[in-house]
Design a protein around this nucleic acid. Sequence first.
DNA 1: CCCTTACCTGTAACCCGTTACACAAACTAT
DNA 2: ATAGTTTGTGTAACGGGTTACAGGTAAGGG
Lengths: 326, 326
Amino acid sequence: MPTIKDVAKYASVSVATVSRVLNKKGYVSKEAEENVLKAISDLNYKPNSVARSLYHKTSKMIGLLIPDISNPFFPELARAVEDVALTYGYTVVICNTDEDIRKEAQYLEALQQKYIDGLILTTNQLSTENYENLGIPLVALDRQFSNRVPTVSSKNYEGARKATEYLIENGSEFIAHIRGPYHVKPADDRYRGFKDVVEEQGIAHIVVDCDFTMTNAMEVAEGLFEKYPTVDAVFASSDIAAAGVLKVAKSINKQIPEDLQIIGFDGIPLGEMLTPAITTVAQPIYKMGALSARLLIKQIEKQLLDVRNYEVETTIQYRETTRSDT
Amino acid sequence: MPTIKDVAKYASVSVATVSRVLNKKGYVSKEAEENVLKAISDLNYKPNSVARSLYHKTSKMIGLLIPDISNPFFPELARAVEDVALTYGYTVVICNTDEDIRKEAQYLEALQQKYIDGLILTTNQLSTENYENLGIPLVALDRQFSNRVPTVSSKNYEGARKATEYLIENGSEFIAHIRGPYHVKPADDRYRGFKDVVEEQGIAHIVVDCDFTMTNAMEVAEGLFEKYPTVDAVFASSDIAAAGVLKVAKSINKQIPEDLQIIGFDGIPLGEMLTPAITTVAQPIYKMGALSARLLIKQIEKQLLDVRNYEVETTIQYRETTRSDT
DNA sequence: CCCTTACCTGTAACCCGTTACACAAACTAT
DNA sequence: ATAGTTTGTGTAACGGGTTACAGGTAAGGG
């Protein structure tokens, strides 16, 4: 691999001149520039980004901290982040934290040592200071964070309200909510949205807990249908959970959506692949990822952010696990 | 961020001594070592990996080139690679190539400039020389590559044979194969496995082409069932395709598995989530990813590889889209 | 004709570690 | 006592860029 010195020698100029040509900075005569350009192409020279990083203390890399890329919510997000990053010349380092405080700390240290330029966080077991002390731009995606950190999330509360109202409009009278983990902001908001609507309208309801796995959702659903056979609608806090409910409901021969309506949340591709396809409160996942990446890169490049907190709209994807009210 | 100089000053030694302590190399007196260790902890010093990279021409990073992380086959693979990488102190850079030659080239250049230590390839539109000229360790996953590059794949031919034989044992007499893209080794091997069995046993069959998307699979399946309504089994080259077939088959009221058996390939989680759950030839996806990562890191760390080509076993996951033969 | 300014270029310091090399002290062997 | 090891430490060069600064030339203004 040729270095800038080789190029300088070949073009009979100093390394400073080569650097000026590369970075289009400072005065360079036309002649010198041509020589340098020719040298670069003759030698197939590529500037070494590590050396650049060392001087500039930046790396053209961003970190994406997610709980687990195997969770179907995240691949699309990761894809969006990566697409945007690529167009701006950044590469993305992916970090599966499993919501484990030690793994997070380990990544943070490794990334900091690599002069990572910024972080997109969909996970934060560590206290926020740990992140802010890094002194690099951050974006919180789908999570609550300190108000110094720009956030991107969808209107979880509102989406949950819409979902619940829709179930009620379609005639359901005893609605179960399968909620997500506590202290996870989106899960809490969805729960509040549900609760507010059922209480306002005086609808019978029940809330059960569930983590993000389908196995757990199925267990929970089994218990639910056994204890409350008259439940006639389920609003699940995620599509994975909804899929679990659907599977269980079908196994005990409930007619969907006649006996039981199901509505999920997230809008992951899985929902469409199932039969019946799951009605869901879809978040624009790709858009959220892309937006986060753009917000992060804007900060990295010292541009001012006009808005610091984005709440994107959710839309109900009307599919086959709910009755139409029209 | 403190540097090695700060540590040296604080401990009243030279930077060389600090470096010796850090790397446990060369002679250091007990006293000096203690002072350095104290300085490191007092100042919370972390060695800068960029500076290290510059000197050593390595980065403790590996690249994972995949077509698209949104394709459900890859998240689990990525997860495995990342898990293994982490335990060996490597970080992974993820690159979605979309099988696009220009994106691949762009990534290759960026990664090379970052002194990436090695690459796991599940995609190669570029000619193999482009990769080999990088002069860094490679592992080809689920792809054919030059014989200088270690490969990891599953027994696609054998798996396809098993699947086809299983359908026949269960009484199917007119079997369709939905094959994957041409010139993609696994798809070709699966096709050969299918063809050999149906020809050996003289079973009526039909082969149709399909890419990796579910939408395409559904179109293909519609055409198939219209033209050949007597098809009584489908062997799909991927679970995604199988899911598409299943959805179409259900929509035209075929009884599964009585009227139509379906068997997929891959063993992605989706298969289990569907109702009926899809019988599939499962590849040990996580294992393949982990194995690739270990092979790569072994090479990076200059250890000799005893075996260079791994073919892992597939196993049929007997689920609900096939009839049992017992 | 002198001074200012724009233009052009090279030297060397710097980013932050690593390590070759030189030097010194302490110890071993002869 | 002398040569040869082992141990311990510091200086400086190096990896591959970037840039402050100094120095030089040419053009324009008064």
